[in-house]
Each structure stands twice: as C-alpha cells, then as structure tokens.
C-alpha cells in the first residue's frame, strides 16, 4: 500500500488536499449526523460558531472522522481542523440565509385575522364618516361614504394580507401578473 506522506503534514496542499476538502465537504452532513444526531445540529447551527466548535470537539468517540485508517491520528487532527473551519463557514453562510422556517399560524388564527381586519376596517370607516357628519352636518352622506370606503379598505386589507401569506408560502401569486404587485 502506498503511503501518502503529504497528508501527515498539518497543512493540506496540492490536488490531494483539494480532493480531501471536497470529500469532507460532501460528507460533512453525514459526519455531523454520526457525531450527535440531527436535532442538536439544528439547535446549534443558528448560534455562535464558537459554541458549535466546542460541542463538536467535545463529542465522544472518533466517529466524526469517517476516513481514518492506518495513518489515522495526525491525519484526523488536520481533518478535524478543516471540519472546524468548514463548520464556521457553513454557520456564517447559514446565518446569512436564515429565515424563520415554519410559522405557527393555524388556519383558525388566519381566518380570525382576516375576519377582524375586514370588520374593523368597515367599522372604522363608518365611524369616520359618522364623525364627519357630526362635524359638518351632512347627515346621512358622510356615514354612507365612510361605510363604502371602509368596506373597500377591508377588502383591500384582506387581499394584501392574503397575498403576503401566499408569498411566504412560496405559491408566488405575484409571478402570474406582476402589475398587481405594486
């Protein structure tokens, strides 16, 4: 068997190094899964990279190095460092793209939201019209106009929030007719 003395060096260089890097990059999820199961990772990936690394080093066993063989020890150490660096970079990248994933909005809460928005907008419109009536003395007309405007505002509010909800659900209503987005 041919030994590879370059890899015992603490640094990784040349094409072999690049191959190892890409191998590690591909296997990183599995490595992490082996080390302590997925849920913990999901807990930690959003937090600081320092803590991530600590947890990683503190994990029991040598499972985190899947390709350790005869010349294992020093090689796994350098690989560990690589993994740490990669983990840091992954963390940074993930934090950049972090979105609040599943939102706890039940259908009932959503329906109630629409209902209150519509009702309240109508009522506020009517109240505004009534107030204008009282101030100016145009008795029924202000109330009527306010009621109609309030209804319009309520419908508009429902449409806007439904659109927003659909965009968050990645149904992309706006891709069909882009004029409506404005």
């Amino acid at each position: 068997m041919i030994r590879t003395p370059q890899l015992t060096d603490s640094r990784i260089r040349g094409s072999r190094g690049r191959a190892l890097m890409s191998h590690l990059l591909q296997n990183l999820p599995n490595t992490i899964k082996q080390a302590f199961g997925t849920p913990l990772i999901r807990l930690t990936h959003a937090s600081s990279p320092g803590r991530f690394r600590l947890l990683f080093r503190g994990s029991p066993g040598e499972q985190q190095e899947p390709m350790s063989d005869q010349d294992g020890t020093s090689r796994s150490r350098s690989a560990n460092d690589t993994i740490d660096a990669l983990a840091d970079r992954l963390d940074a990248a993930r934090r950049k793209h972090l979105k609040p994933d599943e939102k706890p909005t039940s259908a009932m809460a959503l329906g109630f939201k629409y209902a209150t928005e519509f009702t309240v907008a109508t009522l506020v419109g009517a109240a505004l019209g009534f107030g204008i009536d009282k101030l100016v003395g145009t008795s029924p007309w202000g109330l009527l106009a306010g009621l109609v405007l309030g209804l319009c505002a309520g419908v508009r509010e429902i449409i806007l929030s439904a659109q927003k909800g659909m965009e968050q659900g990645q149904t992309a209503i706006s891709s069909e007719d882009p004029e409506q987005e404005q």
Binding site: E117, A121, G125, L149, G150, A153, E157
Partner: peptide
C-alpha cells in the same frame, strides 16, 4: 382614493390588533 383607504386601514390597526387577542 387608495390613500383614503390606507388611512382607514391604518386607523383600524390598533383596534384589530387588540380585538384579535382579546376576543380569542
């Protein structure tokens, strides 16, 4: 016209915000 609707919906915000929590 849209501006009037915006004003109405802005004024209805505190009411709908509070009514939603309270009624639930």
């Amino acid at each position: 016209f849209v501006a009037i609707l915006e004003v109405i919906s802005f004024m209805s915000r505190p009411i709908s915000l509070s009514v939603r929590l309270w009624a639930n």
